[in-house]
Nucleic acid binder design. Structure first.
Lengths: 211, 211
DNA sequence: GTAAAATATGACCGACAGGTCATATGACCA
DNA sequence: TGGTCATATGACCTGTCGGTCATATTTTAC
């Protein structure tokens, strides 16, 4: 957590520092992200930086906390509809919301990529593993509920399905932003639908297969 | 390419240097992989290193070339059966061979991960992009052939299918080695079959769906 | 035995890293 | 006005990096 001094800063200065920091963590993996560059680009002295943050890790964890809160807030309306929609419809809405979130905040996508890249660095478990585990649990619960309702086949390994669903979620974003367009347009729905259709055929029960 | 001096080295010394280098590239992303550590662990002088290799990048590209050749040789027998087997059977054999290759050479898997992580580094296009494109082409050709034979639905986007098949290939390896076992055992076939079954239902024609 | 060619060596270079700290600045209060 | 306390500053510390180079040693050729 940043020190009190940071929160006493004028709003715009705080925002500038955060923006510069996010750009740095988006452009470089954690060990190569440079405090020197951040202070230079933010126009503050090196000493000031260490009045605001304990160290580089402190800053990264704070940035990730902000991103996490924003993403949860973004997906909350969708997740609150659980129970009212069938599994695949809910999943489709989650995928679409995920893509839009990614497109509206390309910096966050890059930061996530850089972090995923540092799977071997000691920073990884502290930074991302917990968040990933939470997402995984959510998908597992959704799948178990869907099996109970007869929307998903019960002869498959739930963990493997959760793994597949979570992975495809990332792949949708990757495919769309890298192979189709970097902006949000009507093709987004088509891509998401094709992925959902794969899933419906792959793990859905027979009555789900031809909607 | 390494300099001639490197190839004049006694076999065991050359092998030692390569092994140490692979361990280094497996443990750290390229920019943090340290020539200093490599020479120390290999017991050679820094100057000698630069008699053997132009620079750090030269060494990495050589390591990747070796890995690529080994993998091609490993998959060749399977790919030569193309035309004799149907699409999904061939794919299943490719997936299984891929898992076994990954398990027999865990170092290579780590090196690949570290590289994939450096997607933003200038080393990436030189090092991996070409190899990935080749794999992608192979899958696209296999899919087109399968469509011609009526084994795969023709109403889907071929590029998206190739993307999916390639991605699932990586996911199979990841899931099995991280969630099931680090050793080869009978569960390997089950995991591969679940992924293949998922694909068969998702992109196969109706006559493929219930084999 | 000797000259030439190939190979081995590690001190050294400049660049940059994260982090520290003595000191300067300026706002607030008595 | 003088004193106190939060904040700002950048020179400086130690460490590591990729890469160089003058020099020493070994191998080869005659």
């Amino acid at each position: 957590m940043p020190r009190a001094t940071f929160f006493n800063l004028p709003e715009d200065k705080r925002a500038l520092i955060l923006r510069v920091a996010m750009e740095e963590f988006a452009a470089h993996p954690f060990p190569r992200a440079s405090v020197n560059r951040i202070v230079k680009r933010a126009g503050i002295a090196k000493g000031s930086f260490y009045q605001y943050f304990e160290n580089k890790k402190d800053l990264l964890l704070y940035v990730l906390q902000i991103i996490g809160e924003e993403k949860r807030a973004y997906l909350r309306p969708v997740l609150e509809r659980a129970g009212q929609e069938d599994f695949f419809t809910l999943l489709r809405q989650l995928y679409i919301a995920g893509i839009r979130f990614a497109q509206e905040r390309p910096l966050y996508v890059q930061i996530g990529r850089q972090l995923l890249a540092s799977r071997n660095s000691p920073i990884y478990p502290e930074a991302l593993a917990r968040g990933m585990a939470i997402a995984h649990e959510i998908f597992e619960r959704m799948i178990q509920e869907a099996i109970r309702r007869g929307e998903v086949r019960e002869d498959l390994d739930v963990r493997l399905m959760a793994f597949l669903v979570a992975s495809l979620n990332n792949l949708v974003v990757e495919y769309y932003t890298e192979h189709v367009a970097s902006e949000y347009d009507e093709r987004l729905l088509k891509v998401a639908d094709q992925f959902i259709e794969f899933l419906r055929r792959g793990i859905g029960t027979d009555r789900q297969k031809h909607p």
